[in-house]
Design a protein around this nucleic acid. Structure first.
Ligand SMILES: [Zn+2]
Ligand SMILES: [Zn+2]
Length: 768
DNA sequence: AGCACGCCGACT
DNA sequence: GTCGGCGTGCTC
């Protein structure tokens, strides 16, 4: 008897045994196939075939049968290995991880399938024997499609010059095509975030403005515009090209300062990789950056299968790219979720801005993109290239140890010197003023000259802290241990962690008074202050409150780039801008940003942010200046900043980390414990947790710190506790976690109500 | 996660 | 007797 083992892609994420589908030879069913299976009395859900085995005897269990086979297979064996590795590494459930990393459309039972150009309803196939038999016949011959093929059709403009046309959607399509030359129907749907564009496309085609064609007519050949690498770019690119041609697994670090032309090294390698018929990924830390890179590279490189990919794409577009990338050499430009596409012959992975912390996923499942990408590159004998102007200290250390090949690009392309950095000490100054006198004078001076200024301040809203004037109580969010921020524009108080919002003024929860004093300032207040001081100039602001959409973000940046504002004030998102041609002054109002958090990464993070900001300051013909205010100038950190000496800083930071046992000298694991505020047995639980930790700590090779209340011990109506583990081996940390968890389950303190959450976070990024 | 099953108190 | 509330445990 043949038995098929299936991982469920839905809760309860179990591995269950089934009989093969009716009328299907097990030899036709592949490992990694997606199948529809019955579950319990009345549910049906989707799963992935893990293995097929033959049992001599009949099973004592009454097995149910797979009701429908779908993609055969959906994922390959190497993909399985990747998920297996993740489930071991992060001590998680295989099915749950798989379900998290696959495009969510695969977790649902499809409603329609296509055979030839005909649509069939899956419900009907499931309920009628005749339809089922016909389906299986086509399925066996691989003639069933799970995607509407005509959405792969390509669209281009008939004439380059199109005048204004009527119809909002039609105009949007035309604009998009002007930017992108050729796009598939699916891409147009995705980029416009509209589902129903068929009638508009139809009209445009009949008006003779666009052409819709099957992809065969588009050149499959790869070509690129002429580009010339300078000497150092050329040498670096050639060395890595050699690795590509010999299909060797190697990790390289490209340490290139802002404006040194890292992108052209990327371009060269991507092109070579595709020429060799292999797939490539170019990762960027954020959607906006990925989109910018995609637009830029499409102009430099022409190839049929270049796709923009992020987790936010519409389901159908993600599904389409998933299918294409599984059987075609593809270039994906996208954010971290791109790494879970089923790449065909992966040859090159580039991680740009590799130091950025958003490569760590900390929602749903926890993983570090760089770790997974390392596994992928090794598995596929691919080249892994990490690029940054300010490499992660861990990467820097690996390079010094000789585990990573390091290359440096230190010449700015056609730009002046990097800006001069001046750190201003606020120690002897009363708290009242936002700007120190020196900086304010400088600011006025630059404004009078007609040059541009960017001001970084990492706190949005008007005022971050409110005190009750009569009793001194600070106003906090009812669901979090976080001060509410006053927003003047909508006269309300907001929690920046959970989104809670109330009208101003609130009533003090202690004394019921309604008089408050304000402390500190956010971007909104600084904008107001500057508008009063300089009423005749335009001041722009860039933060999450202003930027409600990706579109708005671009709009403000572009307007500043065109010189339509003289001052741009914003949170760290302003360091993401590119072509500020006339900025000669940068100001950082709160240089101590995060330095007093209990986070060993704080200094590294701040340095990286400052370097990023410096990259935005300076003109072709004039060296810029960046002023930073701090209350703690005595720190030697500021010496390195003033000298722009990132490498020196890294070396010194490494010494500190070695001394205090921090990465890269130990591995860090954080067990995050959280439970509802009103849980009655929490004291019993915490006692037991502390006891168990002490017991396991005895045999633990490393240090166990905690459980202690988290720095933000109350968030989203939940209490939070941390257990920090330090060890030389990841496996020790995993074992500790698994033992702790099973022991608590055995003692019945965990499972009673599923009120407690226990999460293992390896190499935590956010430790609040 | 859902859903059935079973045990107990309140109500016809 | 039986209806419905919730706590417990299983899903091939
Ligand atoms: Zn809150
Ligand atoms: Zn009060």
């Amino acid at each position: 008897m043949d038995v098929v083992k299936v991982f469920l892609l839905n809760s309860p994420y179990l591995k269950l045994d089934y009989l093969p589908p009716l009328e299907v030879q097990v030899s036709d069913l592949k490992i990694g196939s997606r199948v529809v299976v019955p579950l319990g009395k009345k549910r049906i859900c989707v799963g992935i075939v893990q293995s097929i085995c033959f049992l001599d005897s009949d099973c004592e269990f009454n097995l149910k049968r797979i009701v429908l086979p779908l993609e055969n297979p959906l994922i390959s064996e190497t993909y399985f290995k990747l998920i297996e590795d993740m489930s071991k590494r992060y001590a998680g459930n295989f099915a749950q991880i798989l379900s998290n990393v696959l495009p969510s459309i695969f977790k649902k039972i499809p409603r329609k399938i296509w055979i030839g150009s005909k649509v069939y309803s899956v419900d009907k196939i499931l309920s009628s024997d005749v339809d089922y038999t016909r389906y299986i016949t086509y399925w066996r011959e691989k003639k069933v499609y799970f995607f509407k093929d005509s959405d792969n059709f390509l669209v281009k403009l008939k004439n380059k010059s199109v005048k204004k046309i009527r119809g909002k959607i039609k105009q949007a399509i035309i604009d998009l095509l002007k930017e992108n030359n050729v796009l598939s129907i699916s891409e147009i749907k995705s980029f416009l975030a509209k589902k129903n564009i068929y009638s508009s496309l139809d009209k445009l085609e009949r008006e003779g403005l666009i052409v819709i064609f099957k992809e065969k007519t588009l050149q499959n050949r790869l070509s690129s515009v002429e580009y010339k690498l300078n000497n150092s770019q050329y040498n670096i690119a050639k060395e890595m090209e050699q690795v590509l041609t010999t299909h060797k697994f190697e990790t390289h670090l490209l340490h290139g300062i802002t404006g040194s032309g890292k992108t052209f090294v990327y371009l060269h390698l991507l092109k070579k990789c595709l020429e060799q018929g292999k797939s490539a990924i170019l990762l960027l830390p954020e959607v906006a950056l990925a989109w910018g890179m995609f637009q830029r590279l499409k102009k430099l490189l022409s190839y049929k299968h270049i796709y923009f990919y992020t987790g936010n794409l519409p389901d159908l577009e993600k599904q389409r790219i998933f299918y294409i990338s599984s059987h075609t050499p593809t270039l994906i430009i996208g954010t971290r979720s791109s790494i879970f596409l089923p790449f065909y012959k992966l040859g090159l992975i580039i991680v740009d801005e590799e130091h950025v912390e958003s490569y760590k996923q900390e929602q749903g499942i926890y993983y570090q993109t760089k770790e997974i990408v390392y596994f992928l590159a090794k598995q596929n004998n691919a080249l892994l290239l990490l690029g940054s102007a300010t490499p992660d200290i861990k990467t820097f250390y690996s390079a010094n140890q000789g585990n990573i090949f390091k290359h440096t690009l230190d010449k700015r392309f056609g730009l002046s010197l990097p800006p001069k950095i001046i750190v201003i000490d606020l120690k002897n100054k009363q708290n009242k003023d936002i700007f120190s006198q020196k900086i304010f004078d400088k600011l006025s001076d630059v404004i009078t000259k007609g040059e541009q200024v960017i001001i970084l301040h990492n706190r949005r809203g008007y005022c971050p802290i409110l005190y009750c004037s009569s009793c001194g109580n600070t106003i906090k969010c009812p669901s979090c241990d976080i001060s509410l921020t006053y927003h003047k524009k909508n006269n309300s108080l907001m929690c920046h962690y959970c989104g809670f919002k109330i009208k101003f003024p609130p009533i003090c929860s202690v004394c019921e008074s309604s008089n408050f004093s304000f402390y500190g300032e956010g971007t909104e207040k600084i904008e107001e202050f500057l508008k009063k001081k300089f009423p005749n100039i335009t001041i722009l602001r860039l933060d999450k409150d202003i930027v409600q959409s990706r579109h708005k973000f671009k709009e403000i940046l572009q307007s500043f780039e065109r010189g339509e504002g003289q001052v741009l004030i914003g949170t760290q998102m302003l360091s993401k801008g590119h072509d500020f041609a006339n900025v000669t002054l940068g100001i950082v109002l709160d240089g101590d940003l995060g330095l007093n958090f209990p986070d060993y990464r704080a200094r590294e993070r701040l340095f990286q942010l400052l370097v990023q900001l410096c990259g935005r300051v300076g003109r072709r013909d004039k060296r810029g200046e960046v002023y930073i205010q701090t209350r703690n100038k005595a720190l030697d950190f500021w010496n390195f900043v003033e000298n722009g000496d990132y490498i020196g800083f890294c070396k010194q930071e490494l010494k500190k980390r070695k001394l205090f046992d921090y990465p890269p000298f130990v591995n860090l694991g954080l067990i995050r414990v959280s439970f509802a505020r009103d849980w009655e047995e929490k004291d019993v639980f915490l006692d037991e947790l502390t006891k168990q930790c002490l017991i396991f700590a005895k045999n633990f090779e490393g240090k166990v710190l905690g459980p202690v209340p988290a720095p933000i011990y109350y968030l989203h109506s939940k209490y939070r506790y941390h257990i920090l583990l330090k060890s030389l081996q990841w496996s020790n940390i995993r074992t500790f976690f698994l033992n702790l968890k099973t022991n608590l389950l055995d003692k019945r303190v965990l499972s009673k109500k599923r009120q407690v959450q226990l999460i293992l976070d390896l190499d935590p990024v956010s430790i609040l």
